[in-house]
Structures are given as structure tokens and as C-alpha cells.
Amino acid sequence: MNFILSIVVSSLAVVILVLIPWIGVGALDLRVIFGILVPYAAMATFFVGIVVRVVDWARSPVPFRIPTTAGQQWSFPWIKSNPIDNPKGNTGVIVRMIFEVLLFRSLFRNTRLEYRRTAEGMPKVDYEWEKWLWLAALVFHYSFFVIFLRHFRFFMEPVPGFVALLESLDGFMQMGVLPLNGLGLPGVYLTDMLLMMAVTYLFLRRIYISQTRYISLPADYFPLFLILGLGLTGILMRYFIRVDITAVKQLAVGLFKFSPTVPEGIGVIFFIHLFLISVLIAYFPFSKLMHFAGVFLSPTRNLSNNSRFKRHINPWNYPVKVHTYEEYEEDFREAMIEAGIPVEKESE
């Protein structure tokens, strides 16, 4: 399969996912299915699926202590060790994991290969600055997170204080910035723009860099397109095709309080948005998106490098056939004696 086919297949899948609620609600008026059943089913799949996956991973033991040590080991007091990148205990591991999970530390190390040849045809290899992937990944995840939190405006009554605060921070461009007071963009959230930009970048990067283009599967394009669709329908709703917010909130609060209702007068666009997020969360446990949980279990990151001073136990360690010293001496006794090497048993 080549990259064009991958892109076609995965974008087609997203188009179909848009059409399903469009027809389902727009033409067939299946509001209860798309407003209540699908979201519930998706949430159930999400939570059950993630638990099943994580439990399944956790059922396999960690037989060996294999951290990737990325700094100086703990050694003599006069040698400065690197307690974060080469942790000797749990504190270091926790700090390492926090850096990894919140700041994508490993990705921050990224470089880009620059391969040239000299005039004589000899190779010249360089490793150039490359933080764009790290930046885009960070922007993408944090924007998504802020947008998710902002949505609590719809789920909760009264609206929690942190949501209002977040909205005012996120919407600072509405007010404009010095010296352009009053010239702001009305209603624009920074994270909306950032998310769309980051997703677009991550997609373009995939096809622009020949190596990522080659390794990308439909499963890599699909979530990007799905999130793009999710963002676009959200933005459409907010700026262009207004829906009855009061009714939407009634539906959302109803879902969260387990007393679901589908009020009249909500536009189809909302159902498309709701369907896409439902698909995204239902897809989660079956996909690479599980990396968010997997990173916590990764044995190269979440173990301390202490196996020389604290024995690590392998639960399935079993006895193996070895070549004992006695067998060895049997083989070589004569020669050993002749060479003056001490033996256990003199020759008969």
C-alpha cells in the first residue's frame, strides 16, 4: 500500500463517518440514537477498552530491568551522576516520567540527519537542530487538553470557575493585545487555531518527509483526519452555523447526569460533531492512541537503574542447562595438569 492509497482510505473513512450522522439525523431523524445511544456506547467502549488494554499489558511481567540510561550512573560521590536521566531510585523515575509525559523530553532530543558528500565523494554526516516535531506535538496535545476542559462549560451547571478562567485566558485575542487594543478577533480561541495548525502540520510533515511518508499507515492518517473533522465541525458551529447552545447544554448535562434527553431544535452539525468525538473515543482502546497509557508502563523509562545494587526478580526465571566446571575439567584435565593449572581432581 502506498501513501496515496493510505490517505484516500483514511479520509474516505472520515467522510463516511460524517455522512452517517448527517443522514441519520438529517434525513432519518434518529436523534435518540445519535444523541444518546452512540455517545453512551462510545464512552463505555472507551473506559472498558482502556481498562482491558492496560490490564492486559500489566498481566505480562517485567522480567528484566532494562531502563535506557541517558546520563551518568550513580557511582562514586566525586562523580556527578544524573539522577533524572539515569535514576537510581523511585524519585528519579517519577521526575523522569513527569518530564517525559508532560514535556516530551525524549522527543526534545530529536535531531535531523543531514547527509552530504564532499567534492571528493566522501561522506559528511551532520545532525541538525530539529524541534518542530516536539513543538507541534506539545501544541497539539495541550491545545486538545484545554479545548477538552473548556467543554466542561457544556457538561456542568453552574460552569466551574476554572473553565471561565481558562476561557478568558484562551480567548485573550478577543480583546486584542497591546498595542492593538480593540483590534482583536471576536470570539476566537487561541487553542482552536493552534490545534488546527498543529494537526495540519503533523499531517503535512507525514507526507513531506520521505521517511515518515513511507512508514505511515492508514491508522496514522485516520486519527489526524478525524480530529481535523472534529475541530472543523466545532469551529463551524461556533462561528458559522450556530446551534441552539441552550439545547445542546441540556443534552450534554443530561448525558452526564444519566438522565438523557434530546431537546428539539439542535442542528445536524452538532450531531456530526458528537458522532466524530464518539468514534474517536471508541477507537481509542484499539489504536495507537493508547500510547497515552502505554508510556507510563514503558520499562525503558519507568525503571530505575539499580540492578547492580538491588536484585530485580524475574517471576518466570527457570533453571537452565549449564556446562558445569566438573564437565569442563573432565574435558581438559590432562592439558590443564600439564600446563600447571590447578585442578579439582588429579588424573586416575
Binding site: 492486559d56 511481567p61 500510547h291 502505554g294
Partner: peptide, 21 residues
Amino acid sequence: DRFRSFKLFMDICVRCGACAD
């Protein structure tokens, strides 16, 4: 069943390509 590393590494790669070069 015996190596969490193996099972996990089969599942969580996002093919970001950071390792490629």
C-alpha cells in the same frame, strides 16, 4: 505473555519517525 516490553512495544508506536534517522 512473558515480556511486557514486547507486548507494549507492539502496541504503542505512533510512527512519528523520530527514530528513523
